[in-house]
C-alpha cells in the first residue's frame, strides 16, 4: 500500500515540476518586452528594471531561480501593478475563491447526489430526468450568471447584485457555479446506482431480507459513488475556470477576477503565477482522489493491499 502512495506522490511532484517548466518556457515566449507598455521611460531605467527583476541573466539561471522561488512559494511580482507581489494577490484572493468553490462543491454534490439517488429509486421511466438534466448543462455559464443576476438582483431585488460581503452575496454566484456540476453528478450518480443495483450481490442482499435503507447505505453507496469521486478532479477544473466568469460578473474579488484582469491587461507574470498555483491545486486534488480510491475501490484494494509493503 505504501508503495502505491509513494508512486502517486512522485507523480504529483513530477507533474508540478513539468507545469512549472512549461510555464516558464511559455512566459519566455510571450511577445514583447514586459515593460513595453510603460512609454516615455529612458533606456537606463528600463535596464535597471530588467536587472532588478533578474531578466538580464542567462535563461537557464533564470529558470533555476524561478524554480527555486516557486518551491518556496514565492511566485514573483506583477508586471502591471508595480510592486504588487503575486503572493499578495494569491493571499488576498484565494480565501474568497476557495470559499466560493467549497460552497459550490457542497451544493453540487448534495443536489446532484440527492437528485440522482431519488430518481434511481423510482420505478417509472426516467426520461424526464434525462431531459431536465441535459437542459441544465446546455446553458453556458455566462448566460446563467447574467440571467440570475438580472432576475433576482436587479429586477426582483431579492439578493445583492455584486461583491462578496455577506452570506447572501454568495448565494447567486454559488448557484451559478453549481448548476452544471449538479446536473452532471445527478446523471452520473443515477447511472452508477442503476448499475450497482443490478449486480448479484445487491440482489442477494435483497433476497436476504435487508431493508431498502440498509441495502442503500451499506451496499449501494460505497460502490456507486466511485465515479462521482473520480469526477472531483474535472469538477475542480470546472470550478476554477468557472470562477473567472462568475467573479467577473458578480464583481467578486477573488483569484478568478484577478486572472481575468491579468489576461485583459496582458500581465504575463501574474497569468503564469496564477496558472502554476491553479495547477498545484488541481494536482493536489487529483492526488487526494487517487488516495480515496485506494480505500474505496475494491479492485484497487485487491491489487494493492495484497502487496508486501
Amino acid at each position: 500500500m505504501l508503495s502505491y502512495i509513494i508512486k502517486k506522490s512522485i507523480t504529483l511532484l513530477f507533474s508540478l515540476f513539468f507545469v512549472i517548466t512549461v510555464t516558464f518556457v511559455l512566459m519566455q515566449a510571450m511577445p514583447g518586452d514586459p515593460f513595453s507598455h510603460l512609454d516615455n521611460i529612458p533606456a537606463e531605467v528600463v535596464q535597471a528594471l530588467h536587472a532588478h527583476y533578474g531578466l538580464d541573466k542567462p535563461l537557464f539561471q533564470q529558470y533555476v531561480t524561478y524554480l527555486y522561488k516557486i518551491l518556496q512559494f514565492d511566485f514573483g511580482f506583477s508586471l502591471v501593478y508595480q510592486g504588487r507581489s503575486i503572493n499578495q494577490i494569491i493571499l488576498e484572493g484565494f480565501p474568497t475563491t476557495f470559499l466560493l468553490g467549497m460552497q459550490s462543491l457542497l451544493l453540487s454534490l448534495s443536489l446532484g447526489g440527492l437528485t440522482g439517488a431519488a430518481f434511481s429509486l423510482r420505478k417509472k421511466n426516467n426520461s424526464f430526468f434525462l431531459v431536465f438534466t441535459s437542459l441544465w448543462f446546455s446553458m453556458p455559464m455566462l448566460v446563467i450568471a447574467s440571467l440570475l443576476q438580472y432576475l433576482f438582483a436587479m429586477k426582483l431585488h431579492l439578493l445583492p447584485v455584486a461583491r462578496f460581503d455577506s452570506f447572501f452575496h454568495t448565494i447567486l454566484p454559488t448557484i451559478t457555479l453549481s448548476l452544471f456540476p449538479s446536473a452532471f453528478i445527478a446523471k452520473l450518480f443515477k447511472a452508477s446506482l442503476d448499475e450497482v443495483t443490478k449486480t448479484e450481490h445487491v440482489r442477494f442482499a435483497k433476497a436476504k431480507g435487508l431493508s431498502a435503507k440498509q441495502i442503500f447505505f451499506k451496499h449501494l453507496l460505497k460502490n456507486a459513488c466511485l465515479p462521482v469521486i473520480a469526477y472531483l478532479g474535472p469538477l475542480t477544473i470546472y470550478l476554477l475556470t468557472g470562477s473567472f466568469i462568475v467573479e467577473k460578473i458578480f464583481a467578486i474579488p477573488g483569484l478568478g477576477m484577478w486572472m481575468v484582469l491579468s489576461i485583459i491587461a496582458r500581465d504575463y507574470s501574474v497569468i503564469m503565477g496564477l496558472t502554476v498555483f491553479f495547477s498545484m491545486i488541481l494536482l493536489t486534488i487529483n492526488f487526494l482522489v487517487d488516495i480515496a480510491y485506494l480505500f474505496l475501490d475494491p479492485k484497487i484494494q485487491n491489487y494493492v493491499i495484497k502487496q508486501p509493503i
Binding site: E200, H201, R203, F204, K206, A207, K208, L210, P298, N302
Partner: peptide
Amino acid sequence: RGKEIAYIPQNPHSSLNP
C-alpha cells in the same frame, strides 16, 4: 425474506459483497 423463507442463489462467487 431471510427469516421465514431463505434463498440460496446459484453463484456464490458474485453473491457476496466483495
